[in-house]
Amino acid sequence: MTLPLAITAPLSFVPIIAIESVVQRVFARVIKTHPGLFDRLADHAAKRYAFLPSDLPIGFLVEPAVPRISVHRKERAPASDACMEGELVLLLALLEGRIDGDAVFFSRDLTVSGDMEAMLALRNALDDCEIDLPRDLADLSGPLAPLVRRTAEHIRERALGRVFKEEAPRWN
């Protein structure tokens, strides 16, 4: 599901530092909730991983060894060892392990370039972590947590439903 222009276009004008501040808070929360997230990476933790949502004008660079995430305009993207490109909803679904990486790669909805070994290790590490973004976002929202969680879960259901054109995949 490609994000609507009404959502993506303003990101070209919002200062990167503002976007980065929000993204870094979520990243820190995920790391705190899943302290073993990068254990499976072994030596690949020192690599730099780029994630480029094809429907956004920005990209993300993850450096697990630091650990750090930074946000960049696509035209100024820094060098990376491995890069994954696809629609934002797909990238987030992969982050949560809600879709199978190989399947979206076979369907050509996802592009991977650079160090395949490093990206495979990261994919497997993420897949084992059971990240739940609505829950992690809610944890950052104080008294608004229940509302944020419900809203985020609703958006996720709808987005994944559109991706798969049927009922969104559910956990057992």
Binding site: G97, D100, D127, P169
Partner: peptide, 10 residues
Amino acid sequence: RQRGKAYVAE
């Protein structure tokens, strides 16, 4: 075994 948990579950 090399596939993700979403594949396994489905």
